[in-house]
Design a binder for these strands. Structure first.
Lengths: 142, 142
DNA sequence: GCTCGAATCTTGACTCGTTCAAGAAAGCGG
DNA sequence: CCGCTTTCTTGAACGAGTCAAGATTCGAGC
């Protein structure tokens, strides 16, 4: 994913192409599931002068444009990923907080069938699998 | 659910029976999906002098004892409910934040079958249905 | 009942992710 | 290249939740 590619993505979404936004979107692509802090660090490798606010603003703009997805598991800070629109879910380690992607077991829009909808209009089913990652399992055993 | 009942629940879980804990557990039963703030308010109706810290401590003790469940949807403060151990899920309104319970469509431990487990040991599958509640749907239309 | 040790509660300060606000800078249509 | 608008910088503020020290309370054993 090169800068021109990223710029094109931004333009397609009617977003202005600014240096911070290009760097932020590039960082989200390079670091899946990264926290805002990690993204700020990553962005500052290229643009040492960006403010944290610019990164927050960019992430919000990218999120509402649908170019990145924000995930915020209980007890964690916000994280961002660039896989959007494919209805995948997450596997999160309770010990170290690491996140892995999982495709939905049931199909394209899985679990969207709640048993009772209480009159709600459901537009998304978010699934989080909680567990222990291989690294942390062995660490405990050892 | 009366005070003696609640005291019994606490004792069964090897928790000391204190006034704040009884009041907190009672409040969680009375107000499903309440935020910590609401619970503090509710508890202070009976015990005007409880500190917020006591409520936080009690909720943590009750949560780790498995007597209450903590839920924390993205962009919301922590909420608590007394339905535990029945693997139900939640339906959350994006507009007003209201939460409704839904039993799992697939069975007792649903969706626990991720397509790839990446070596993780999965112990819980949390499902959140995002949408718009009946009240907010009509409000927009009107 | 009473005593004592450990768990719990009060008080109050503090952290940290995130948001708010005002003014300066930069993107982009014309 | 101009000017308008959006975006970025700077710096302060907010709020849920946590930490810490000392006082209180629970409850097992006598």
């Amino acid at each position: 994913m090169t800068s021109p590619d990223i710029a094109a993505l931004l333009r397609e979404s009617d977003l202005r192409v600014t240096r911070p936004r290009v760097a932020v979107l590039g960082a989200v692509h390079a670091l899946p599931h990264a926290s805002t802090d990690s993204l700020i660090e990553a962005v500052r490798v290229e643009l040492p002068e960006v403010s944290h606010q610019a990164v927050y603003d960019s992430l919000q703009a990218l999120t509402s444009a649908g170019l990145v997805r924000r995930i915020q598991p209980a007890g964690s800070v916000a994280r961002y990923e660039s896989r959007v629109g494919d209805n995948h879910h997450h596997l999160i380690c309770r010990t170290c907080g690491s996140i892995a992607d999982v495709d939905c077991a049931v199909g394209d829009t899985p679990c969207l069938a709640a048993s009772t909808d209480h009159g709600f209009t459901i537009d998304e089913a978010e699934v989080i699998y909680w567990g222990t990652c291989p690294g942390c399992s062995t660490a405990v055993t050892a």
